[in-house]
Lab assay of single mutants.
Amino acid sequence: HYVEVNGKKIQATSAEEAEKIAKKFAKIYNATVLDLGNYYKVT
């Protein structure tokens, strides 16, 4: 599981952790979290 933010991949140990990381970055960048199955993308 990982999160992609601005083209950078951030490794996460679980889907739950990946979701938390994605939501945190989405809040910082006022962005949207896309759940793409095996990873989250912040756009």
Rank of each mutant, 00 (worst) to 15 (best):
H1L: 08
H1I: 12
H1T: 08
H1G: 03
H1N: 07
H1S: 08
Y2H: 04
Y2N: 00
Y2P: 01
Y2W: 15
Y2C: 09
Y2L: 04
Y2D: 00
V3I: 08
V3G: 01
V3F: 03
V3E: 00
E4M: 12
E4C: 14
E4L: 14
E4I: 14
E4T: 05
E4P: 00
V5G: 00
V5A: 04
V5N: 01
N6V: 05
N6Y: 13
N6R: 08
N6T: 03
N6G: 10
N6I: 05
N6K: 08
G7D: 05
G7Q: 03
G7E: 04
K8V: 14
K8D: 07
K8E: 11
K8T: 11
K8R: 13
K8S: 09
K8W: 13
K8M: 13
K9Q: 09
K9A: 06
K9H: 10
K9G: 02
K9V: 14
K9I: 15
K9R: 13
I10S: 02
I10H: 06
I10R: 01
I10D: 03
I10E: 01
I10L: 08
Q11P: 14
Q11L: 14
Q11Y: 15
Q11V: 13
A12N: 01
A12I: 04
A12W: 02
T13E: 12
T13M: 11
T13H: 12
T13V: 12
T13I: 11
T13N: 14
T13W: 10
S14C: 08
S14E: 01
S14I: 05
S14V: 03
S14R: 02
S14A: 02
A15G: 07
A15K: 15
A15R: 15
A15F: 08
A15E: 05
A15D: 06
A15M: 15
E16G: 09
E16A: 14
E16I: 10
E16L: 12
E16T: 09
E16Y: 11
E16D: 10
E17F: 05
E17Q: 10
E17C: 13
E17M: 11
E17A: 10
E17V: 08
E17D: 10
E17R: 07
A18K: 01
A18V: 02
A18P: 00
A18H: 00
A18L: 02
A18F: 02
A18Y: 02
A18Q: 00
A18E: 00
A18S: 04
E19P: 00
E19C: 14
E19Y: 15
E19L: 15
E19W: 15
E19F: 15
E19N: 08
E19M: 15
K20H: 10
K20P: 00
K20Q: 12
I21A: 01
I21P: 00
I21N: 01
I21W: 08
I21T: 04
A22K: 01
A22D: 01
A22R: 00
A22P: 00
A22I: 03
K23P: 00
K23H: 13
K23F: 11
K23A: 10
K23N: 12
K23S: 09
K24A: 14
K24Y: 15
K24Q: 13
K24N: 11
K24I: 15
K24C: 15
F25P: 02
F25A: 04
F25K: 01
F25E: 03
F25V: 07
F25H: 04
F25R: 00
A26T: 03
A26Q: 08
A26K: 06
A26H: 05
A26Y: 04
A26G: 08
A26P: 00
A26M: 06
A26L: 06
K27A: 15
K27L: 15
K27Y: 13
K27S: 13
K27F: 13
K27E: 15
K27R: 09
K27M: 14
I28R: 11
I28A: 10
I28P: 04
I28K: 13
I28H: 11
I28C: 14
I28T: 07
Y29D: 05
Y29V: 05
Y29Q: 05
Y29W: 10
Y29R: 03
Y29I: 06
N30D: 08
N30G: 14
N30K: 10
A31L: 11
A31Y: 07
A31V: 09
A31K: 03
A31S: 08
A31N: 03
T32K: 09
T32G: 06
T32F: 10
T32Y: 10
T32V: 13
T32M: 10
V33H: 02
V33F: 07
V33R: 00
V33G: 01
V33A: 04
L34C: 10
L34G: 04
L34H: 08
L34K: 08
L34T: 09
L34S: 07
L34N: 06
D35Q: 15
D35H: 15
D35A: 12
D35F: 15
D35C: 11
D35V: 14
D35P: 07
D35L: 13
D35S: 09
D35R: 14
L36A: 05
L36Y: 14
L36P: 00
L36C: 15
L36S: 03
L36T: 04
L36F: 15
G37P: 02
G37R: 01
G37N: 05
G37M: 05
G37T: 04
G37A: 04
G37Y: 06
N38V: 09
N38E: 11
N38Q: 08
Y39H: 10
Y39Q: 02
Y39N: 06
Y39F: 08
Y39W: 13
Y40K: 04
Y40T: 03
Y40C: 07
Y40F: 14
Y40S: 01
K41P: 04
K41Q: 11
K41D: 04
K41A: 08
K41M: 11
K41L: 14
V42Q: 02
V42G: 03
V42S: 02
V42I: 10
V42D: 03
V42M: 02
V42W: 03
V42P: 04
V42A: 02
V42N: 02
T43I: 15
T43Y: 12
T43K: 07
T43L: 13
T43R: 05
T43A: 09
T43D: 10
T43S: 10
T43C: 12
